[in-house]
Simulated assay, not measured.
Amino acid sequence: MAGNSFGTLFSITTFGESHGKAIGVIIDGCPPNIDIDEDFIQSELDKRRPGQSKITTQRKESDTAQILSGVFEGKSTGTPIAILIPNEDQRSKDYSHIADKYRPSHADFTYQQKYGIRDYRGGGRSSARETAARVAAGAVAKLFLKKHGIEIFAHVSSVGPIEAPNLDTTDLNALLERRENNIARCADPATANEMIALIDEVRKAGDTIGGQVSTIVRHVPAGLGEPVFDKLHADLGKAMLSINAVHGFEYGSGFIGSQMRGSEHNDIFIKENDNVRTRTNFSGGIQGGISNGMDITFRTAFKPVATIMRDQETLNESGEATTITGKGRHDPCVVTRAVIIVEAMTALTLADHFLRNMAYTNER
Rank of each mutant, 00 (worst) to 15 (best):
A174E: 12
I196M: 10
G3W: 05
S242F: 01
L350Y: 04
G248N: 11
E61P: 03
K75M: 08
G223K: 09
L9M: 13
N4S: 07
I341A: 04
T191Q: 13
R118K: 13
T110P: 04
I98A: 10
S126G: 14
A239F: 00
D207K: 13
A192M: 07
M260P: 02
A190F: 06
P161T: 15
T169E: 11
A132M: 10
C186E: 10
F229G: 05
G211I: 13
E363T: 10
G123F: 00
K114C: 10
R91W: 02
E177T: 12
P86W: 04
T280S: 15
E363S: 09
G24I: 15
G70R: 07
K146R: 12
A306F: 03
C30G: 06
E17T: 05
V220A: 06
I341Q: 02
N181T: 03
G74P: 00
D274Q: 08
I290D: 13
T307G: 02
R218Q: 07
S126K: 07
H19Y: 01
F269T: 11
I209E: 05
R179Q: 09
V305G: 03
D200V: 02
C30S: 12
I268V: 15
T361I: 03
I27W: 00
D37A: 03
G51T: 12
G138N: 09
E38V: 12
I290G: 13
R49H: 02
H148T: 08
G262A: 05
F282E: 13
A338M: 02
G160M: 14
E17P: 00
V217M: 13
S62W: 00
S127P: 01
E61V: 04
M309L: 09
M195E: 08
F269A: 13
D311K: 15
R364T: 11
F269V: 06
I209C: 05
A2R: 11
G78C: 05
T77F: 00
K327T: 14
N266W: 01
N292W: 03
S214H: 13
H247N: 15
A245P: 02
C186K: 07
D207H: 08
N362D: 07
Q52A: 06
R91F: 02
I67W: 03
R91G: 02
S69P: 02
I81F: 05
D108E: 14
K54V: 12
K93D: 15
F229V: 08
N281H: 09
A234C: 03
D171P: 00
G3R: 11
I117N: 14
G7P: 08
N182R: 10
R125L: 04
A222S: 15
H265P: 00
P304R: 11
I150T: 08
G7E: 13
A107R: 10
G289L: 03
L172F: 04
D39V: 09
T322M: 08
A306P: 11
I98Y: 04
Y111M: 12
T323K: 13
R277A: 11
R118F: 07
H353C: 03
S127I: 10
I290E: 14
A128N: 05
R337N: 04
N266H: 12
T346M: 11
R299W: 00
F6L: 15
K60G: 00
I341W: 00
Y360R: 15
H219W: 02
V335N: 07
S69H: 01
M240L: 01
A22E: 14
G328Y: 03
R218I: 12
T322N: 05
P304H: 10
S43G: 01
G254W: 10
S318T: 04
